[in-house]
């Protein structure tokens, strides 16, 4: 249950990617569940991945263990949102 007035997990993931990768609002807004991320976005290198995960931890008050980080969770925008939602909503 997300309290009213707080951004959803999807909004938070979208805003985090935009802030860290320097994406325009329009580009970030165009992401759908099937938009490919890692390997498809040139801005998303391994250093940026570390920044995205750490920023998601901060914004969602979650902890992501290193052994949970794999290619699948970063494959698409939908996969990353689903991963973050599982962590945030438990």
């Amino acid at each position: 249950m997300i309290p009213e007035g707080k951004p959803t997990v999807e909004q938070t993931v979208r805003a985090t990617l935009a802030d860290i990768l320097g994406l325009s609002v329009e580009r970030a807004a165009s992401f759908t569940a099937t938009t490919p991320l890692f390997g498809a976005l040139p801005e998303l290198d391994s250093m940026a991945v570390a920044s995205v995960l750490t920023e998601l931890e901060d914004r969602l008050a979650i902890v992501i263990e290193d052994d949970e980080v794999d290619g699948d969770m970063l494959e698409t925008f939908g996969a990353l949102v689903a991963f973050a939602a599982r962590k945030a909503l438990v």
Binding site: D19, I20, L21, E43, S51
Partner: peptide, 11 residues
């Protein structure tokens, strides 16, 4: 605001 220190490109 957005966290400058996490930006992939310095800004």
């Amino acid at each position: 605001g957005s966290p400058l220190w996490r930006r992939a490109e310095p800004g």
